[in-house]
Design a protein around this nucleic acid. Sequence first.
DNA 1: TTGTAGGCGTTATCAA
DNA 2: TTGATAACGCCTACAA
Lengths: 334, 334
Amino acid sequence: MSETGGSVPKRTTLRDVAKAAGVSHQTVSRAINGKGEIDPETQRRVLDVARQLRYRPSRFARGLVRPDVVSVGVIVPDVVNPFFPEFIDGVIQAAGRQDWQVVVASTQYDQARELTLLRSLSQQVDVIVGYLTHPDEELAASVGGVPLVVVDRGLDSPTYASVEIDALTGIREAMDHLTDRGHRKIGMIDCVPPCGDPYARRRMFQTLTAEHELTVDDSWIVTVEQSVAGGNTGFRELWQAHPDTTAVLAFNDLVAIGAHQAARDLGVRVPEDCALVGFDGLTVGELIEPPLTTVHLDKRRLGELAVQQVDRLLSGELPPPVVLTPQLVVRRTT
Amino acid sequence: MSETGGSVPKRTTLRDVAKAAGVSHQTVSRAINGKGEIDPETQRRVLDVARQLRYRPSRFARGLVRPDVVSVGVIVPDVVNPFFPEFIDGVIQAAGRQDWQVVVASTQYDQARELTLLRSLSQQVDVIVGYLTHPDEELAASVGGVPLVVVDRGLDSPTYASVEIDALTGIREAMDHLTDRGHRKIGMIDCVPPCGDPYARRRMFQTLTAEHELTVDDSWIVTVEQSVAGGNTGFRELWQAHPDTTAVLAFNDLVAIGAHQAARDLGVRVPEDCALVGFDGLTVGELIEPPLTTVHLDKRRLGELAVQQVDRLLSGELPPPVVLTPQLVVRRTT
DNA sequence: TTGTAGGCGTTATCAA
DNA sequence: TTGATAACGCCTACAA
C-alpha cells in the first residue's frame, strides 16, 4: 500500500490529544469528562488542544466501558401515512423520558424489506418495536434473539411481547350508535390488513350485524385497497349494489374520506342521505367538512404502551399482551 | 456487595460461548460471522451453544473494530405536524440507500429541549440534521464539533451546511396567479417563524404587493399563531377589517385550512367570494373540499437534500447552501 | 481448521 | 493532581 491515497482520515483519539498536550491520555479523559480531579489550568489547556485537533470521543469505545443509553428501533410500513407519525411520537416520547434513543425505519410496505431491515436493525439497537407482517417464526430468524415488541397482530404472536388493539369493542360502539339512530341498512367498506386474519374486520361486522339482527348479507361488504382512492371506489361499488344503504362503516379514516368524496360526487349527502363512520381517529378527519365520526384509537398511547412492553422485556420478563381499546368519537357524519 | 441482588445481568460474551462450547473465542467469532475457515460441524455446534446462552454481539465492541454504519440524528420540532413526517421520510430514505441509520428526536417546540437534545444526540450519532431555532453560536456550543446540517434558516447560517427554501419565488408565483385572475385586494395571514427573521414572510408579501402596485397597506396583514385555530382567528380579523378582501394568502396550509373554516362559518364562499392560497403543499390540502391551492414544497426532497449535504460534510467539505424552490399548485380555492 | 496475541478508544482503579 | 495499567468485547493477523 502506498501512502499516496488520502484514504481513511483515521480518527483523532484521546492519545493523540494527550501527546499533543504533553499529558497522559487519562488526563485528557478527565478533562473531557470534567469530573474534577484535575487542575483547572491543565483542563483548559487540554480542552484547547482537543478542540484544535477536532477531537470527538468514539461512541463505541465509550459504550463499551459504560452502560450506554438504550437504543430502540422502530419499524413501520410508512412514515408518512398519518397513522404512524403519532405512533412514532408516542414511542419517541416514552423513550425520551428514559433518555433512550429511537432509530426509525420504514418498510415502504415491502415485505422483503421488512426482513432486511429487521436483520440490519437488530445489529444496531437493543430492542425493536414494529408494525410487522411476517409470522413469528420468520421474525425470529431475522432478529436473531433481539427483544421484539410487535403491534396489532390480532393476538397472533405468542412468541413476542405485543400491544393489541381491541377493534371489536370500538366497532361495536359504532354499530350501536348507528342502530340507535335507526340505521338498518349498513354497508361496510373493508380492506385486507397487512398481516393477520384477512377477514378479521369483516367477521366483526358480521358478528355485529347479527347481534343487531340487520338483514344485510355479504353483498353489503366491499373490499378495496386501503387508501383514499380505495374508499372512493368502494363507496361507488356499494352504492351501486345497494342505493338504499343509509350508513357506511369504513375500514379506516382514509378509506372513509375517499368514500366521502365519492358520495359528494354522486350527489349523496353525508350524513343526511348516508351516514359514515371511520376508524383510527386521524386528525385529518377533524379538518374535513363535515368532520368525520370515527372509532378513535389513541395512537400515541399505542406507542407509549409499546415502550412499556419494551421496559418489561428488558427487565427480563415476557409480559402478556397489553390491549388498547379505541372509542367512538361522534362528529358530524352520523 | 452480596450476591443476593439481581443487579446487572452482565452480558454473555464471545468467551462465555467459547468456554461453554469448548473452543477458543476466535472459533466462536468465525462461527458467528460465518466467513468460512471453519468446520461446518464445529460451526453448527458453536451456533447452538450461542443460541442457548442467548449470545448477541455487542454493537459497541464491533463498532470499535469495524467501520460501522453511519448514524444520522434528526431533530424536528414535532413529529406529528404533517410537514415533518415527509421531511423525515426523505431523510430516512436517502440515508437508507447508504445503509445509514436514522435517530429521530423531537423538541416539542421547546427551545431549551432543543439544546438538551443536541447535546445528548451529538454523543450518539455521527452527524445531525435539524430544524433548529437557536443562533449558530449556541448550536456550536451544544453539538461540540459534530457535523451539522441545518434546514430552512433563511440563509442565516454561515457556519453550517444548510438546505434553504426559496419561499419568495413560490409566493411570487402565487401572487402572480392571483393578480392574473384580477385580484387586487389581497390579504395575508402571517405567522412568526420559529427562527430567523420574524418579518420574513411579511416582507415578501409587501415586496410583491408593491411589484403588483396593489393598494393594500399593512392593515391587510394579520399575524396569528401558526395553527388551524390561528388561521381561523386570522381570517375573522382580516374579514372584519376588510370585508372587501377577495383573496387571502396564508402562512401555510394548516393556517389556510383554519381560514377556510372561518370563511365557511361566516358564510364566505371559497373561492367565489374569497380565494385562498396556502403554503407547504400538505396532503391534507387535497382532502378538503374544495382542495386547497397551495405553494407546494417537496418536503421529502428537502430531507434528501439534507442527507446530500451530510454526505459532503462527511467527505470533508463545507458545502454551500443548497436551495429548494417550491411551486404553486393550483387546485380549487382560487 | 483452530488457537494465540494484540489492538481498537475509552473509562476505572490504584499508585505515585 | 496526575499517570500507569487493566479491563470492556470484538476482530484481524499470524502461528500451530
